[in-house]
């Protein structure tokens, strides 16, 4: 599984999203991406990439796209 596939899977599992919806996903754009869902997503990402995210990054992860930049820039996850 590539990092991209792992990343996508976290969103699919956390929000019950379809692959074609992923790129447009933003925090609170879907009923499932509320604050509870957000923490579920963070937990999935941390587990998947074996990282521990800092609180500022957790708060800053406001969209599918932003999440990719944060993981790449701060947690050395290459896409």
């Amino acid at each position: 599984m590539t990092n991209q596939e792992k990343y996508d899977q976290c969103f699919i599992d956390s929000f019950n999203a379809h692959e074609d919806q992923l790129k447009g996903l933003e925090y609170q754009s879907s009923p499932l991406w509320d604050s509870m869902g957000h923490m579920q997503l963070i937990s999935a990402l941390e587990e998947q990439f074996d990282i521990m995210m800092e609180t500022d990054d957790i708060v800053d992860l406001s969209s599918y796209k932003r999440g990719m930049s944060i993981l790449a820039e701060k947690y050395d996850v290459q896409f």
């Binding site: 923490m39 963070i42 937990s43 941390e46 609180t55």
Partner: peptide, 13 residues
């Protein structure tokens, strides 16, 4: 608060 935030990641999982 910071310690609780980190610990709760383990605990929730």
């Amino acid at each position: 608060i910071e310690m609780i935030q980190y610990a709760s990641k383990f605990f929730k999982r």
